[in-house]
Design a protein around this nucleic acid. Structure first.
Lengths: 140, 140
DNA sequence: TATTATCCTATCGATTTAGTAGAGTTTGCA
DNA sequence: TGCAAACTCTACTAAATCGATAGGATAATA
């Protein structure tokens, strides 16, 4: 299941993408518009900024804004920053690979092979959807 | 990410499916073969039994065995018993639906619509894979 | 310099996860 | 009948994670 962190992050990104101008928006505005706890959202936006997807401006008239490149960044990238691996088991993760200590042979493991299929399908969606798709389809 | 409970459950089911005879197998045998903590596996197998997928026999020569129908039961069913909803958010779950309290309109929600796609793709895999497929492909 | 708004660290309660302990119950067999 | 084998059930626990809150530090603006 998706954590609230990721869900809120997606909604905040979607909110910022819907504004054509990339003017800074205060955390408070986003949190009220999307019904998100302000302090929690604060830490989420900071994470996205540190990851290089958002810009921020301090002081009056400040806030967070979408960096231009983020409009066409696949959702998969945001997901990895907020939630972690897209794969359901570390042994099929492309970006966070880890061997299972209990499994002698990955190629013969039923779970491994099933989860590769799931990963590939999920990836194909998340790599081919961007914030601009959300805007295009009027999604909030 | 998949919990160990689900992963272990899948491996135990796969183990039982590989035996053509549906003779009872002791927990200890499965736990050693698959490198799973015996007591933990105990509770997992009990869950699967209560859900109607495994049979059990007490006393000498007892153990757990696969019910015949379970061979062709889709993995999705086992997943729901062990892990819960397949959907990544409750508002797109078919079997565990819940409305998001923060979301005014599901049809316009970017997260909702994205997760419907993910769910449908994951479902198509999990509904079309069974234990007999594992056996067929020699997967442990 | 006062105000505004992000940045950062620390903490917290509740829940979940991955087990462990141990007694109870049923079955097979001598 | 009685013992041993093996599942059944309840309860407990340590550790991690989640969702959130508190409060001060820092930077930008007027």
């Amino acid at each position: 299941m998706l954590s609230r962190k990721t869900k809120y992050g997606f909604k905040a990104l979607s909110f910022l993408a819907r504004r054509e101008d990339n003017e800074p928006v205060q955390i408070e505005v986003i949190s009220k518009a999307e019904n998100i706890s302000q302090k929690f959202l604060e830490s989420i936006l900071l994470t996205l900024k540190k990851a290089g997807y958002l810009g921020a401006k301090k002081g009056k008239g400040g806030g967070y804004y979408l960096l231009e490149k983020s409009r066409n960044t696949p959702i998969a990238a945001f997901y990895r920053v907020l939630e972690g691996p897209i794969a359901m088991v570390p042994c099929v993760s492309l970006n966070f690979y880890e061997k299972c200590e209990d499994c002698p042979d990955e190629d013969l493991c039923s779970v491994h092979n099933l989860m590769i299929q799931v990963r590939d399908n999920t990836l194909s969606i998340m790599e081919n959807t961007s914030l601009s798709d959300f805007v295009k389809n009027q999604l909030t």
